[in-house]
């Protein structure tokens, strides 16, 4: 575990103390045995201050991330529990937020969630009863000791609330408009969708920085041209630029991993000065996260 992390701390406290934070992510297992996912989380935690645990990412069935977050805590890994609005109504969402506090989870990332049409259970009933802005409002209310009807709770939560933004989305104006609403609703930190265009990100930060909450730039190491094409076709809000695909295409097959990591490191180093941290989605390359982070220090 990264030694500067005090287990149970809020992500905002880490940023306040150190000026910069690194988070990573793991997906819960597609089955009932958490051991491999926990091993991946341990590897990420060697480099990261906290490890996001995704909630049915890509609308694919996986273990409850809340259970996974608790299992991570038991191993001294600080989780950022991701919660989507896709699968639960307002009662279930509030119930899980209360449970998260009781289980020792301190950092929560609130997102809308990928639509089930894109996942492995396309016939599922979509809930989306609250959107991410509304759920942030509700979570802040729980922190203040009341449920969303205004009724008092026997004990308040103490959760550090995070939100996401897609800085390279088509319409960044609308993204910033919604981001502002999320911060007004109670978001205390931001983790972004993957960034590939540092100058564009800098322009985004020039506007988002004024919103006054720490922003962790999202990074995905693109492992191959094939992965780039897949991401562009299938991952919402992600645009791997042609120059990066070109560089991967030109690499010798034997050097592909080194080139991919170098490119990820370049982007990390370019965006780090204008934000408050990195959120690295290693996509199976958990063991290489250290190299990407090291590029920032160089």
């Amino acid at each position: 575990m990264n030694n500067r992390w005090r287990t149970g701390a809020k992500l905002t406290e880490v940023v306040a103390q150190h000026g910069f934070a690194v988070t990573g992510e793991v997906a819960p297992p597609r089955g009932a045995d958490p051991s491999k996912a926990l091993a991946a989380a341990r590897m990420v935690a060697r480099v990261a201050d906290a490890v996001n645990v995704t909630d049915g990412q890509g609308a694919m069935l996986r273990m409850s991330p809340l259970a996974m977050a608790r299992l991570m805590k038991e191993q001294g890994i600080e989780p950022v529990w991701q919660v989507t609005c896709r699968d639960r109504n307002r009662i279930a969402l509030q119930a899980d937020l209360l449970a998260a506090h009781a289980l020792g989870v301190r950092n929560v990332l609130i997102v809308t969630g990928d639509h089930m049409v894109l996942g492995d259970h396309p016939d599922a009933r979509s809930v989306f009863e609250l959107d991410s802005v509304q759920l942030l409002h509700v979570a802040r209310g729980l922190n203040e000791g009341r449920d969303m009807t205004g009724a008092p709770l026997a004990a308040a939560t103490n959760l550090c609330l995070g939100a996401v933004v897609a800085p390279e989305a088509d319409n960044v104006e609308l993204q910033i408009l919604k981001l502002r609403k999320k911060i007004d609703a109670g978001a205390e930190f931001i983790q972004t969708q993957a960034v590939f265009d540092p100058p564009r990100f800098e322009r985004f930060m020039a506007r988002a920085g004024a919103l006054g909450v720490p922003v962790l730039a999202g990074l995905i190491p693109v492992k191959s041209p094939r992965m780039a094409r897949f991401m562009n076709a299938r991952i919402p809000g992600v645009n791997v630029p042609p120059w990066l695909i070109q560089r991967l295409n030109e690499a010798d097959p034997g050097d592909l991993r080194a080139v991919a990591l170098e490119l990820a490191g370049q982007i990390a180093a370019a965006v780090a000065p204008c934000c408050q941290g990195l959120h690295i989605m290693a996509q199976g390359w958990e063991d290489a996260m250290g190299e990407i982070v090291a590029a920032v220090a160089r």
Binding site: C85, H115, V117, V165, A166, D170, Q175, G237
Partner: peptide
């Protein structure tokens, strides 16, 4: 909006098309 979003779009629209049903426009656009 397939996600019934009331406070702004998701981040998934591609060239103004809905990420869930790419044959139709993103209503937020």
């Amino acid at each position: 909006c397939p996600k019934q979003l009331m406070n702004g779009p998701c981040g998934g629209a591609q060239s103004g098309r809905c990420e869930v049903f790419p044959d139709r426009p993103c209503v937020w656009e």
